[in-house]
Amino acid sequence: MIVLRTPGGLSLRLRPRAVGVGATCALLTMVLGVVAIGHGDYPMSAADVLRTLTGGGTPAEDFIVTELRLPRLVTAMAVGAALALAGAVFQSLVRNPLGSPDMLGFTQGAATGALVVVVLGGSSTMLAGAALAGGLATGVLVYALTWRRGVHGYRLILVGIGLAAILTGVNGWLLTRAPLMDAARAVLWLTGSLDGRGWSQALPLLVALTVLVPLVLLANGPALRLAEMGDDTASALGVRVPRLRLLVLGAAVLLVSLAAAATGPVSFLALTAPHLARRLTRAPGPNLLPSAALGALLLVAADLIAQRAVPGHQLPVGVVTGVLGGGYLVWLLATERRAGRL
């Protein structure tokens, strides 16, 4: 633990390990980002990429980097960070490592919104808007069903799993109602893909991250850590637990919904990133910033794999995160069981 103090009485407390994990993730994301921008039908060297990014590229390079490849990279980073943050918040709120938007129905709700647009027909902007609305509506529904008189994490999980099951059924029905071509497009969306994502997809999420991360999540980080010790203990220390839950749940649902609107539901990232971050930092609590940095890194890496794994063919990034995330979960269950913790 490092403590920084100013003569004016201000003080900051940092965990070297957590700072290290965050900084390493950020650095690796930059490196992979340069690699990712250089990759494609028009390959560019790292030097070319850096030259273009700093404003010294030819018009053609400029177009390829700033209009095609950079927005995709930025979208990947933003979606990765948003999903990881939301996952960290949910896991902390329900005091359960399985608390993630995939399990609690928010992802399915966003999908329902998007599928309604697919069935009724509509532009991709409408699809993104409907995904956002679907995710938020699920958030309101979960809140209404669980929060009436002080909520228990357990109840949130059960209600979430129930809603997820119902919405999965609804989504299946909507898919069967869609014309074949649209259904195929919808399935691609449901897998989660970064293909062809531009600034218009990245921007809303970037704005939300800029506002929500410092004002809601970081400001409430210490209180969120205390709430993990139980409602009574946290209240006794001066945390207004119901208000805290409403605020951070709202922020997390908004981030998940915006992420789904940008890329479709990218599976398992919200579950694995905070988990992995906690193992790396060895710090109790939600580990918000290290989780966000790791989430961005993982999604950028997954997208790079998705573009290269099968020569001549791009995989949707959701396939990669699903395979890797699921694999990680199985590995984790196996090792935890061997260690006698499960």
């Binding site: 139980g230 203990t233 109790p284």
Partner: peptide, 22 residues
């Protein structure tokens, strides 16, 4: 205000959960 109360009145509840590894 909740924090002001928490500077005057403390409580040791019947059950608290110690976060893993703390």
């Amino acid at each position: 205000p909740a924090r002001a109360v928490a500077r005057t009145l403390g409580l040791l509840p019947q059950s608290s959960v110690a976060p893993e590894g703390i």
